[in-house]
């Protein structure tokens, strides 16, 4: 539960924190849900801003994402072998915190974050730069074009989805630009936001998944999340257009 809540701040950090969970089953479930359905703060901010003038789209987005979280979580809990966790916790007496202790701890945590997480973000930026330089991205964007077409989205969003993988917030910010130029209808807005939220986390989080869960599990999750995200977007597009 704690890692899931942390995910609303930073999914990468939260994925790292899943190591505190007791059983492998819990760690896998938490990692999957973080990667799939928990938007990080950067993403959440942009998505909320994006939909500020479209309360209906916002409602659709919330319902879709929460629905996915609940359904996949429940299914995952059934599919993965093992018993549900039991809750036990020692309750230390609560004392007034000492300023010195708080500062030391904050400092240590920040150091931890910068040493473990920041290099991944830097690496992601290097990938981004190399991808653009070599023209590899243009090829991938061309490959993605029919996919976003199937979701009823403008072609420009292909680029945003790709960039969103490298920097989740970047992807959402790209949508923001499209929206400002008036290129997105409310339906497209909802579809794009849902797909982007569900779609694979930023690359830093993916690298953290590799590190914490191992290559096999992380790649399996990637292979699961990609069709789920685009499938959800596809269905949502059909449903919304049918009911318009």
């Amino acid at each position: 539960m704690i890692p899931i809540v942390l995910g609303f701040a930073c999914d990468t950090m939260a994925t790292m924190v899943t190591r505190t969970l007791e059983t492998k089953r819990e760690r896998v479930l938490a990692t999957l849900l973080l990667a799939l359905a928990i938007p990080c703060s950067a993403q959440l901010g942009v998505i909320l801003a994006l939909m500020a003038h479209h309360p209906l789209a916002l409602g659709v987005w919330s319902l879709s994402v929460i629905g996915t979280l609940v359904v996949i979580g429940a299914l995952g809990a059934r599919v993965l072998p093992g018993d549900g966790p039991v809750f036990h916790m020692e309750l230390p007496p609560l004392r007034r915190p000492r300023l010195g202790n708080v500062l030391t701890k904050t400092l240590a945590r920040m150091q931890w974050y910068f040493l473990e997480v920041l290099p991944l973000f830097l690496l992601a930026s290097v990938f981004l730069w190399a991808g653009q330089l070599t023209g590899l991205f243009q090829v991938v964007v061309r490959g993605l074009t029919p996919v976003v077409g199937a979701l009823g989205l403008p072609i420009e969003t292909a680029r945003i989805f790709l960039f969103g993988f490298f920097r989740r917030d970047y992807g959402a910010a790209g949508l923001f630009d499209l929206q400002r130029q008036g290129l997105l209808s409310p339906i497209q807005l909802a579809v794009a936001a849902v797909t982007l939220t569900l779609f694979v986390p930023c690359i830093a989080q993916f690298l953290m998944m590799l590190k914490e869960r191992g290559a096999r599990t992380a790649i399996a999750m990637l292979a699961f999340i990609t069709p789920v995200a685009f499938g959800a977007g596809f269905l949502l597009n059909l449903v919304l257009r049918a009911f318009r």
Binding site: V86, F87, E90, L91
Partner: peptide
């Protein structure tokens, strides 16, 4: 929401299952 117990100076919380 959970069963909180005290033994000696130790306080702890467990779910109903435990």
């Amino acid at each position: 929401p959970a069963f909180v117990m005290r033994i000696g100076h130790t306080e702890f919380a467990v779910d109903d299952q435990l």
